[in-house]
Design a protein around this nucleic acid. Structure first.
Lengths: 253, 253
DNA sequence: CAGTGGTCTAGACCACGCC
DNA sequence: GCGTGGTCTAGACCACTGG
């Protein structure tokens, strides 16, 4: 007796909502279209706003939605394929790469970086900061740590810092025959500094790519690049030609 | 006048909490140690439980914490380095790889997979499901799609499905000279099926690695591997020796 | 200024693991 | 059963964007 409930589903509401919204996005919306606001959507589905937001968070994590405070929620385009592989474009110092040098200073790196470069903790290394922009929006911020002994010819450079010095260091680096060692990828969350550069809020999910470069038989440079996880699909591999391309949505997982 | 507030900080509480807890984890806790429960922690910091949970979610995302329903929150070990590069170990069919074949069926793949393999949507391909276990815990689930025409010698295999057939298909595959083409990595969320295999809840963050393999001048196999993002650090590169190793915590982002 | 998403609260109940 | 984390609610206020 009582209420005839067909429920008994252990599936959370927010997860079911995610599924419903995913199908709606696939069939009834076009890229760039703006969704109804969160309060209206929550009311329409008969859930609390917090529950709806849990579903939206999932979809944003999967790169299906883009939310901007003060503006609204829009349907995101398919993720960009960003080459981070052995393509020559990603080598530090290549003149035609996609990176925009911002600054270069001589400072003491984090302990983990010092360890990887084989210097004492507290020793200063060159630190080049660069950003990568694709299709008009920032996709990555990088810190490139360079062993000072590898780029001795810097005394003739006037600028003590700034983009000019960064370019000078990269030019020096280019003279070396850099050999890519290995990269690893892990999930992280953007801290304040990077969040601003990537036009996201603190805590936004990022893919952190760490790459070691070798020259003269030793690790000479270390790159720590932070990519927006919501908009980027990192591409490793030996293809020479294509650097950036779009693709239809694969299954979410 | 009135209350002398030094605040005026635009930093959210949960973010500040994350920072405080990160430092506490670094200095006052050891791996495996269990934290006080969420209600106590929230009370101790003077915030609502939801706010505390937002901070814990961040830390779990960064691989610093592990939370299990019914058990508690523990300090996670550093992420495992998992080789997904050109190491021979990860090639499909290598006998000494880290993968455990679970099943193999002939079924129609998702549209995106059909496109990559160059078959008509609706055509069936061999689908091998495998799981990867490291240090006693599951780290990845893979679906390996194989062009049927590439492995014709399967008529003498009795088993219509199951691990036995999966191994048979992989043996056949091994006969081909598979050439790794390229891999890409993107953030996803675990759907029910994978969530169970990875011992996580639905929606858990995963790193999806898609790899194309080539033989006889055409794409012959496609691997879609789903790694736990909280416990894994994916390693690409040409190193031959080390396959799995641990490392100290680098900076979160 | 109005409207949006972002943060936060103080509750309640549920699902799970363990004893 | 009991304690844990997971889900959900119905509100409030804040921070930002845009007209």
């Amino acid at each position: 007796m009582g209420t005839t409930q067909v429920d008994s589903l252990p599936e959370p509401k927010y997860w079911h909502l995610r599924t419903v919204l995913t199908e709606a996005l696939d069939s009834e919306f076009t890229v760039g279209e703006i969704l109804p606001n969160e309060r209206d959507l929550a009311a329409r589905f008969g859930v609390a706003r917090a529950t709806l937001r849990q579903a939206l968070e999932q979809l944003e994590l999967e790169g299906r939605l883009q939310r901007r405070r003060g503006v609204g929620t829009t349907v995101a385009p398919p993720r960009m394929g960003v080459a981070v592989g052995t393509s020559r474009h990603t080598w530090p110092g290549t003149p035609d790469d996609a990176w925009d040098p911002a600054d270069c200073v001589l400072e003491t790196p984090p302990a983990s970086v010092a360890g990887a470069l084989g210097v004492h903790p507290g020793d200063a290394v060159y630190t080049v900061r660069r950003s990568r922009v694709t299709d008009g929006q920032p996709v990555a911020a990088e810190q490139l740590y360079i062993l000072p002994s590898s780029v001795p010819g810097l005394s003739d450079v006037d600028a003590p810092s700034g983009p000019a010095r960064a370019r000078a260091v990269l030019r020096e680096l280019q003279r070396l025959e850099l050999e890519r060692q290995e990269s690893d990828v892990e999930l992280g969350s953007a801290r304040a500094e990077h969040a601003k550069a990537l036009d996201r809020l603190p805590g936004a999910p990022v893919l952190v790519v760490t790459t070691r470069y070798r020259a003269d038989g030793r690790t000479t440079a270390l790159s720590v690049a932070t990519y927006r996880a919501d908009t980027c699909r990192l591409t490793f591999g030996d293809l020479g030609g294509v650097e950036i391309h779009h693709q239809a949505h694969p299954q979410a997982s």
